[in-house]
Design a protein around this nucleic acid. Structure first.
Lengths: 223, 223
DNA sequence: CGAAACCATGTTGTATACCATTTGGCGACG
DNA sequence: CGTCGCCAAATGGTATACAACATGGTTTCG
């Protein structure tokens, strides 16, 4: 997976790389992102880096202080749980619409993602990590795209692109990943069968499972 | 209002101007946005224009075709109604949270917005137009900000930044604006009193009123 | 006469250079 | 000794220059 799958445009590549850096926690919340620094790191100039940062800023992944640089957003537990609730509302709705409108091609993509995730979760030797995250994102993106609603798609993209969603991932154990795979299987089956109510509730169940993982993770402190 | 209210950064100014151009329909859906063109129009270079376009793209207001330019997104009725439903869900939740957490300063801002909107709606001689839209946006933004949830804020910003929301505005009649003002007043009162349930339902009522306006607007043609 | 390749032009993509602003430190003054 | 203000280095903000790609028209060959 060293082939960085040349995504034509440099700013998109920059976006993906930086996004991944944040998702994986390589860049800590609150940390400052210097444009020249990132440019040198990625072998690019500041221009595409800036555009990537703007996009991340728009998505809420980083905070933008005029003339003072960009910083990785920090989220407290309360915010995060709120986001999960919103995500559950949005994505379950998407699942319902997808069950109604999805086509064969998109179903194939979902199946591929599911197969990939199954394989990754099978060898529980190591944390599936970023590869699993990518498949997960693709799975959900495909569903949202199947709704045919581009604005809705943009919204959900912004929700799932939250840095902290991955912090939930990062401390998933092997059994958590297997459960995740099983849930994705349920969602796919529900959508494939065209059962809107099932698709909606299966997706909601999936999202709220993730929420619960966050709740349990050191729920001792604040609030 | 010729003083372009110096918003420090040029790209932000570019974003606001372009966004307004789309909202007011000065740039039609599907139309191409040329960077050099916009730069000349706004008295800026391509760089800030590009960043503004990237942000708009991320928000789903424009579509981005690599090496082929950006185009204003077109939305069909179904998508739009769907978005209103999502917006209702999101904003009513925000109103509930705001009723719980809002501070005196933010309440003052809301009151100011309401006063301004009242004044604009009073002289029904002319369509209040973009000034009213600005106040409306500020009103809603303030509520969302009062939730203290930055991600939620980003999401709602993206919803209200839909080009077509304003197309609803554009064909508002004087009585529609007065009703809008009255609803904003109700929302403010509900939030001020700390009545979460009322705030939530007042906001939902407000959003769904707008949805209804879209439903009625020429449901005959296309598709 | 038709079609395909080529070239001209415009537009986007990226890099670089320059300007503005912030920021930390040093020195002068109270 | 403390504080205020100035200076310099660094960093973000913007403009411009150049390269890559797409597109439409023209030319040329079948």
């Amino acid at each position: 997976m060293t082939a960085t799958e040349d995504t034509s445009t440099a700013h998109q590549k920059a976006y993906e790389r930086i996004h991944e850096l944040i998702l994986t926690g390589r860049i800590a919340p609150g940390e400052r992102l210097r444009e020249r620094n990132l440019g040198a790191l990625l072998g690019l100039s500041r221009t595409p880096v800036r555009e990537a940062l703007r996009r991340l800023s728009s998505e809420g992944a980083v905070r933008f202080e005029p003339n003072r640089g960009v910083y990785v957003e920090e989220i407290d537990r309360g915010e995060l749980l709120e986001i999960f609730d919103i995500g559950a509302a949005l994505e379950s709705r998407c699942a319902r619409l997808a069950a109604r409108k999805i086509g064969g091609e998109a179903l194939g993509v979902l199946q591929d993602c599911l197969d990939g995730m199954t394989k990754l979760a099978a060898r529980s030797e190591r944390n599936p990590g970023s590869d699993y995250v990518k498949l997960d994102k693709r799975f959900h993106s495909t569903i949202v795209a199947a709704t045919g609603n581009r604005k809705l798609q943009a919204l959900v993209e912004h929700v799932v692109s939250l840095p902290v969603l991955s912090s939930a991932f990062r401390q998933y154990g092997p059994e958590d990943f297997r459960r995740s795979v099983r849930q994705h299987g349920e969602i796919l089956e529900a959508i494939r069968s065209g059962d809107e109510a099932w698709a909606e509730v299966a997706m909601r169940n999936h999202i709220l499972t993730g929420r619960n993982a966050v709740v349990k993770q050191d729920g001792t402190a604040e609030d």
